[in-house]
Structures are given as C-alpha cells and as structure tokens.
Amino acid sequence: MTKFKRNKEEIITAYIIILPWLLGLSIFIVGPIISSLMFSFMDYSIVLPPKFIGLGNYKRMFLNDPLFWKSLYNTLYMTVIGVPLNIVLALSVALLLNQKLKGEALFRTIFYLPSVVPQVAISLLWMWILNPQVGLINYLLSLFGIKGPMWLASEQWAKPAFIIMGLWGIGGNMVIFLAGLQNVPQHLYDAAIVDGANIWQRFRYVTFPMLSPTIFFLLVMGIIGTLQIFTQAYIMTAGGPMDATLFYVYHLFNKAFRDFHMGYASAMAWFLFIIIFIATIINLKLAPKWVYYESE
C-alpha cells in the first residue's frame, strides 16, 4: 500500500464536499443539543423560563427515582438480547434471499412488508398473535406440548414479547444486508470453492469479513436505536404490566411532556447519551479486531 501523502487537493475536496453536512450540523443540530445539555442543569418546564439548579436533576434521578433505574434495566435488557437476535435473523434472511431463488423480488418485498405497515395498524394484530388464550404463538407452542406464557399480561414475559415483535421489523436491516452482500465479489466464492471450502467455511472466511463493515454499522445503530425504543410500548402496553415495559425514553417522555419537567428529561437524555457514547466508543475500539475494510 502506498504511503499516504498529504495532498492539498484532497483536503480542499474534502472540505467542500463535507460543507453541506457541516452547515446542517451547525444550523440544525448542534444548537439544540447544547441547549438540552444546559436544560439538564435547570428547572425547565418548557412553558416558563428555565432556572439554574446545578446538579439537582441528576441527583433526583440517581437517588430519588426508582422508575429511572427500572426503565434503564428494561431498556438494557431489550438491547442486550434484542439487538444480536435481530442482526442474526436479518442476516439469515438476507443470505437466503440472495440465493437467486425464483420469486426473489416478491419474497424480498414480503419480508420488508411489516416494516411498511403502520405500527398502529398492526398493534391490533399483535394483540391476537400474542394472546395467551387464543393467540397464534401459544397455539403453536401447544402443538409441542408447551404451555405458553402470558406474554403481555405477565411481568416476566412482556419484554420477550416485545423482542419477538421486533423480529418482524428486520426488513430494514435485511435491506442493508442485501446491499452489503452485493459488495462481496463472486470471484472470492469461486476461489473458495476451488479450495474445497464448505458452506460454513465460505461464510466464515468470505461472507463474514466482507460483510463486517455492514454488521458493524447495524450493531452500532441497533444499540443506539434500541436504547431509545418507545413507540410500541406506548401504543400497546402503556409501560405495563408493573412497569415491565416502561422503557427509558418512555419514562423520559412522561417527565418531559406529561409532567412538564423538561429539565429532568434532559438530564435523563444526557445520561443515556453517555451510555450510548461509551458503548459506541467501545465498538469503534473493538472494530479493528473483526471489521475488515477493503480500503485500508
């Protein structure tokens, strides 16, 4: 590889083409982020002018709000279990749909469908699928002699139920994997076959490294996204039963818009920011060990 030479043209080009994003950042994005950081040190009700209270919000959050901890736990649970499952399933489906099967276009569309149907519309359907008495899942389990759990009505099973629901939303990740798979050159497979590699070896030594930048992207985004989940619980369980699906951002939302306590919500947001930031930095640091960039 040729040693990189700092090149004026390269730098100028970079600054020109990054300019729109730089402007976007500074006009639309950085300001609100900094304001929210300031609000986290203030008593801010949105309607009335904010008042500085130092670390008051943070103190309350750590010492006086059991729901803060509960919601943090709920959200970490979803992230630790949900994100890997989601990625593995999306990858499997993408691999399957990349096999030049007949009706490929149709199947790809079908697997993307649940991501298209509005959430409100299918929440009704989920109530049925997850219903302990007449629902589809427990019916299927009963065929194997298993008595299905109470799902959304149960404190232990409500979160797993949400993870299962989330699996129907792999369409987006599948699309990204499908795009990623197109960047795996066919000649690498051909070479592997010549070397006598079996399916698993081909996946392990060709597909996986070539896809690793995509997987890395989905892992980082999955963590960022799942730590902020909110909508489904809002529509389907209102955080219940017994706060089992009260996710972090749901609690934050309650504080911000139901209790007019935006200062507190901002403090929560910044604590979450720090968690996500650390997780992302760890990801970035670990990346060189397993992510393979053709470019470098």
């Binding site: 990054i18 994003w21 730089l22 950042l25 006009i27 639309f28 994005i29 300001g31 609100p32 982020i33 304001s35 929210s36 609000f39 949105i46 980082v220 985004m221 960022i224 902020q228 951002v249 934050l252 939302f253 911000a256 818009f257 935006m262 919500a265 901002s266 947001a269 910044w270 979450l272 920011f273 996500i276 930031f277 992302t280």
Partner: peptide, 23 residues
C-alpha cells in the same frame, strides 16, 4: 467530526425537539 456525527444520533429527539422548533 465523525464521532460528532455519530453523537448526533445518541440523544433522544424528545429533548431537542423544542430548541429545534425555536430555530
């Protein structure tokens, strides 16, 4: 700048919504 770019996704939009409205 790349880290900053990633960081813009890490704050729940609920808390930046109103400052953004003001902009």
């Amino acid at each position: 700048l790349f880290i900053i770019t990633l960081a813009t996704m890490m704050l729940p939009p609920q808390v930046t919504m109103i400052p953004q409205f003001l902009i």
